[in-house]
Design a protein around this nucleic acid. Structure first.
Length: 479
RNA sequence: GCCCCCGUCGUCUAGCCUGGCCUAGGACGCCGGCCUUUCACGCCGGAAACGCGGGUUCAAAUCCCGCCGGGGGUGCCA
């Protein structure tokens, strides 16, 4: 602690609504908010925005929290809006009393009709203001009748709200573009625009980082801040993430949830790193691989791009490969690989063996899913050789190779890939066959496939009894 | 339709603020070569961009204007 900074502590928050899985775009927003807070030694708050009782689901909340933790985020405070309704109630009263808001008895059908008419006439839709000036008596009467009502914010006429966005710069929006908007639903629950303002103000949020799809909400919120007598925070609207067709990344582009990437065998470190590079770039140099700690150190809003970025799975895959082969420790790789190997039904009780295999093969797969396929020969007892390849073995006179190997197996030193190559060279010499033929024959008998991991690596870790078993099986099969 | 935002290789981007160092740099992907027991990995090389049109200036990717293009919003969703 330098103790020199007298600035007010930075407080950011991530506010997901539990109406679906954690989307990559939201995950990136969360990451940027987190980095920004941690960079300045500030506070990062997680707040579940579940005011919409219809669509919010507890299961989604659980998965979102799990995904946030998985990707490496931690938070200092946690809130759930559904538990704060009484707080909102107090402020709603205040707005009503001071005339900043009023009850609206228009039904959804009525409003829907107004909207359709506006669309037909090709004019921008705004609430008509029908209930704006209802007398107190009228209001009481309608309430007494039991008519359901919402509460609308009374937007001041002719106002243009201007704010300085930390990423986009100055943004000015006229209130004519939206009109009086609903802040309390007819079931009494506050809408997003109201709850978000009260919470951000009460929680001391200083910087609101969110997707740019929220830009149009910002003037509404600023108006509420003013009506409530709160100081608005700074806003930073992040460009959205696009799919390959340049429309907002969504389900129809395929996997978009953090959990699906976890299931596909991506490492959280790699996904975190990749997401940071979408819309942000390091201030100097051309490096792309950064740890979370480094990102906390160098992250700055001024380096956030203003334009939307297209998500590129190929690059994510590449980066994941970089993490698998050279960034993470063997210990860490073992940790993340184990569940995948287990799930595939592989025998992984021998930790040293699994680690040996991983260390020798880690430079040849980009995801843990790929790894599972790639490592099959290391973890199964026997392999199936398709007829086509059995035929090929015959043509290559493979029996001679296998017999020779089995014959010399006991005395052979197969302790390393180098030693294996030495051994195979002797087999080549003894059989008089071409090196290619020998290697290829061994590959097919040992893996049942024509391509894959290096045979030298395979032979150097595979227990001799398993080598013998596969070769003997191949021999009998060829007879 | 209306409002707002954005516009450098196919994609992510550096450069733009503070014009000249830009014959525009890096990365993914792509193509070619090397390595090699296969596929990968690795190494070497290559193709590939300042949306268009005006203006300002000795000089513009960089500043100004217009156009075009893309995106987002337009909910009793967030």
């Amino acid at each position: 602690m330098s103790g020199l900074k007298l600035k007010v502590m930075v407080v950011t928050r991530f506010a997901p609504s539990p109406t679906g899985l954690l989307h990559l775009g939201n995950a990136r927003t969360a990451i940027f908010s987190y980095l920004f807070a941690r960079h300045s030694g500030g506070k990062f708050i997680l707040r579940v925005e579940d005011t919409d009782r219809e669509r919010s689901k507890k299961e989604f909340e659980e998965v979102i929290l799990e995904d946030l933790k998985w990707i490496g985020l931690d938070w200092d405070e946690f809130y759930r809006q559904s538990e704060r309704f009484d707080i909102y109630g107090k402020y709603i009263e205040q707005l009503l009393e001071k005339g900043y808001a009023y009850p609206c008895f228009c039904t959804e059908e009525e409003l829907e009709r107004e909207r359709r008419i506006a669309e037909l006439r090709r004019v921008p839709y705004r609430y008509s203001g029908k209930c704006r000036n209802l007398s107190e008596r009228e209001v009481e009467r309608l309430k007494a009748e039991g008519r359901p009502y919402t509460i609308r914010f009374r937007v001041p006429d002719g106002r243009t709200v201007v704010f300085e966005d930390l990423i986009k710069g100055k943004i000015a929006i006229s209130v004519d573009d939206f009109g009086d908007f609903i802040i309390v639903r007819s079931d009494g629950s506050p809408t997003y625009n109201l709850a978000v303002v009260i919470d951000d103000a009460l929680m001391g949020v200083t910087h609101v980082l969110r997707g740019e799809d929220h830009i149009s909400n910002t003037p509404k919120q600023i108006l509420i801040y003013e009506a409530l007598g709160f100081e608005p925070p700074k806003f930073a609207h992040l460009p959205v993430i696009l799919g390959p067709d340049r429309s907002k990344l969504s389900k129809r582009h395929g996997a978009v949830s953090v959990s699906s990437y976890r299931e596909e065998g991506f490492l959280p470190e790699a996904l975190f790193n990749y997401l940071c590079l979408l819309g942000w770039s390091p201030p100097d140099g051309e490096r792309e691989i950064f740890s979370k700690e480094e990102l906390i150190e160098i992250f700055d809003l001024k380096d956030v791009n203003r334009s939307p970025a297209v998500f590129n799975l190929e690059k994510l895959r590449w980066m994941n490969g970089v993490y698998i082969r050279e960034v993470v420790s063997l210990e860490r790789l073992y940790e993340v690989a184990l569940p995948f190997l287990r799930e595939a039904g592989y025998r992984v009780d021998n930790e040293a063996y699994v680690k040996r295999v991983l260390q020798l093969t880690r430079d040849s797969y980009e995801t843990l899913r790929d790894m599972v396929d790639r490592l099959r020969p290391f973890f199964v007892d026997r392999v199936d050789v398709p007829d086509r390849l059995t035929q090929l073995l015959r043509e290559m006179e493979a029996t001679r190779v296998f017999e020779k190997v089995v014959e010399n197996l006991d005395g052979a030193d197969l302790s390393s890939p180098e030693k294996v190559r030495e051994f195979v060279r002797s087999v080549v010499k003894d059989t008089g066959l071409k090196p290619r033929q020998v290697w290829h024959s061994l590959r097919i008998a040992l893996t049942g496939e024509e391509e894959g991991i290096g045979v030298d690596i395979l032979l150097s870790v595979l227990p001799k009894d398993r080598i013998r078993l596969r070769l003997e099986e191949a021999i009998s099969c060829l007879r």
